[in-house]
Each structure stands twice: as C-alpha cells, then as structure tokens.
Amino acid sequence: MKRMDWILILAVLVIAGAIYFFYMGGAKAGGEAVITVDGEVYATLPLSEDASLRVETEEGYNIVEIRDGYAMVTEADCRDGICENHRKISKNGENIVCLPHKMVVEITGGENPAADMVVG
C-alpha cells in the first residue's frame, strides 16, 4: 500500500460523506410520492393517506403502496424485484427505482397537499 492509495480511499470516502449529508442533511419528511414512468409523471400520491396504485408501464406493472406515511413498492412483475425489496421511503429526495420498467417513485415536499391524485 502506497501513500497515494490511502489518499484515494480517503478522498472517495469524504466525497461519499459529503454527498450523503448534502442529500440527507436537509431531508425532512416529504409530503407526497411522485411516480414517474420513463421520465414522465404518472401519478402523485399524498403520503398522508393510505393508498394503493397499480402502475402500468409498457414493460409490466408495479404496485405502489402508501401506508403510515411511507411509500413502498409491494409487487412488481420485473425480473430482479429490486424495487420490491427496497426499504420504504418517506423523506424528501428518497426514491425507489425500478430500472426494467423505467419507473421511479420519488418523495417531494408537496406544496399542494390538497390534491388527492393527479393522473397525467
């Protein structure tokens, strides 16, 4: 192990820490879960109400559930099922990504909590 090795390892860890705090430092509980498919907004669900939504994509479906202020993907017919195993999310900026279906569930602040659901 040379000195440069340690410098590299330290630098990467510092960068990782910096990005982590940049994202998580100001993360508050978000207001709504925005579901996008292929970059376009599919639906917006408020976290305050329990809900279950079947997201149909060209590749298959995902079932997104809102429960006790958390959003999670409970079911999907994709090959790897990474989104199903993902922990539930509730904070601003957190997201669950289903790469095979190009579907993203993202938590945002939610300036308009009055809207029940915007399907677009």
Binding site: V12, I15, A16, I19, G39, G93, N95, V97, L99, K102
Partner: peptide
C-alpha cells in the same frame, strides 16, 4: 447509465452508498 435510463438525476442519491461499497 441508470440515471440516463430513468431520466432522473436523483439516482445520485445512491452514489454515497455505492462509493463506499466500491471502496
């Protein structure tokens, strides 16, 4: 590539975990 596929730069959220695991 993942960020390009889902067209969501927020994928960077995973970056810290992946950097540490890479190390």
């Amino acid at each position: 590539v993942a960020a390009l596929v889902v067209e969501n730069i927020k994928m960077a959220y995973y970056l810290p975990f992946l950097l540490v695991s890479g190390v």
